[in-house]
Simulated scan of single mutants.
Amino acid sequence: MSYLKLFNELLSPADIQINGTREWDIRLHDEAALDRILVDGSLGLGETYMEGLWDCDRIDELVHRITQHNLEDKLSVKAKLLLGAHLGRKKVVNFFNRQSVERCNKDVPFHYDLGNDLFENMLDERMTYTCAYWKESFDLDSAQTAKLDLICRKLGLKPGMKVLDIGCGWGSFMNYAAEHYGVVCHGLTLSKEQTALGMEIARRKNLPVSFILQDYRQYVPAVTYDRVVSIGMIEHVGPENYKDYFTCANRFLKDDGLFLLHTIGSPESKTETDPWINKYIFPNGVIPSISQLGNAMEHMFNIEDLHNIGPDYDKTLMAWCRNFEKNWDNIAEKYGDRFYRMWRYYLLSCAGAFRSRSLSVWQLALTKEGTSLPQFARAV
């Protein structure tokens, strides 16, 4: 049975055509892809692209249109009617903590230990793997520097302060804050690859920056910190652990301190992520909602400021993809064609999701409940 007519009808409201001539239209190489997409939804869409069953010049715009018009839900309804609910994927209830210490020690390296060479050929000069701030910037390097400085100013950093970075990556924030604001930084990470390169970068500049290869739940600091920051890490924590995460941040922070949380945000409370992203990119990652964060920080933190820079992630992801494509020849032999299609699909489909505003990026400035407000700049 051919589903070509069905798919063209479903895609019509988003002005997408199969074998059309626009950049966002799908060029179908094998109709077997349609059967897979009908049954497996977004997982089938991503996998059939990886397998070369279809192509599209502007995956970012394709996904933007699909997401903006909520086509996946409509497709799911059609699939159940046409194929019967028994053909859909059976939902498995997981009674275990999918972001336990043990699982995180496996899931985090799955992505971040792929190879520093991959990220060096994709990211900015500081190796910043989170949303940039494009308000007054026109290139990736300056936009990432602007984001790091924005966070430093919001934190009101002063020379000599001790700062903890939960999920520090390659240390881009720590290195910037230490170099330009004179603070001492400690960073928590579970990635050996990030730690090795991050320490090398910090040593080159002789900065007071140290990396701690440890889960935040197991970290017992010798001191409390003037400031705590976490940039793009809570997406790996999971709703079952949000309370523990904020409890730890509260314990790490001085009573008059400030905690800045930078996270991708969802308008809907969920307990799991997109199936394709979960399988190939970020195992067991979950994007939090405001209500999930608010419930988890009750009786611990006040929200002093909330800043949404979500549209900037579209620009950031597109810049990463341009770098990845431009520098692909440097790493092609190591990673191979299938990886190229997978990684390109990851970057462009995520850009489309942010363009449709189904995802945001929030920066929350938090103080401990019951304490006076420290020096804080709403530097937007």
Score class of each variant (00 low, 15 high):
Asp35Asn: 08
Val184His: 07
Asn19Lys: 07
Glu333His: 13
Pro267Gly: 09
Gly115Gln: 08
Pro374Trp: 04
Ile231Asn: 06
Ile309Arg: 07
Glu120Leu: 14
Asp73Tyr: 13
Ala353Gly: 12
Pro311Lys: 05
Thr189Lys: 03
Trp170Gly: 00
Tyr216Ala: 02
Ile234Glu: 03
Ser356Ala: 15
Asp312Thr: 06
Gly198Ile: 03
Tyr345Lys: 01
Phe7Glu: 10
Lys90Ile: 14
Ile281Val: 09
Leu6Ile: 11
Arg58His: 12
Val184Arg: 05
Leu260Ser: 10
Phe376Ile: 01
Ala319Phe: 11
Glu304His: 01
Asn250Ser: 15
Ile201Gln: 04
Arg322Leu: 12
Arg103Asp: 09
Leu82Arg: 01
Met199Cys: 12
Tyr245Arg: 01
Ser289Phe: 13
Leu6Gly: 06
Asp73Pro: 00
Gly238Ile: 12
Ile231Met: 11
Asp139Gln: 00
Gly169Ile: 08
Ser291Phe: 08
Arg204Tyr: 03
Gly156Tyr: 04
Gly198Asn: 04
Asp244Gln: 10
Phe376Ser: 08
Ser230Asp: 09
Val63Leu: 07
Pro239Asn: 10
Asn284Ile: 13
Ala365Ser: 14
Thr21Asn: 15
Glu193Arg: 11
Trp343Tyr: 14
Tyr216Pro: 07
Arg27Gln: 15
Tyr313Ser: 03
Ile66Gln: 04
Ala178Tyr: 02
Val39Trp: 01
Leu157Asn: 03
Pro288Cys: 15
Leu197Asp: 00
Ser356Gln: 09
Asn250Ile: 14
Asn250Gln: 14
Asn330His: 13
Ser266Gly: 09
Glu240Asn: 10
Arg378Ser: 15
Ala146Glu: 10
Gly182Met: 01
Cys168Ile: 07
Ser372Gly: 11
Pro221Trp: 03
Ile287Val: 15
Val163Cys: 02
Arg126His: 13
Lys74Asn: 13
Gly370His: 06
Thr273Trp: 08
Tyr340Gln: 10
Ala143Met: 08
Cys131Ile: 02
Asn308Ala: 15
Val77Thr: 14
Asp113Ile: 14
Asp15His: 15
Met233Asp: 05
Gly84Lys: 08
Leu81Thr: 14
Ser100Val: 08
Tyr181Arg: 05
Phe138Gln: 00
Ala33Arg: 06
Leu71His: 03
Leu366Gly: 02
Asp107Val: 07
His180Met: 07
Gly88Ala: 11
Val380Met: 10
Leu75Ala: 08
Asp35Trp: 09
His64Val: 00
Ala33Asn: 06
Met199Arg: 11
Ala33Lys: 05
Arg22Asp: 15
Gly285Ile: 14
Asp312Phe: 15
Arg217Lys: 13
Phe282Gln: 02
Asp15Glu: 15
Phe173His: 00
Asp274Asn: 09
Arg36Leu: 13
Leu87Ala: 01
Ala319Gln: 05
Ala296Glu: 12
Pro159Thr: 01
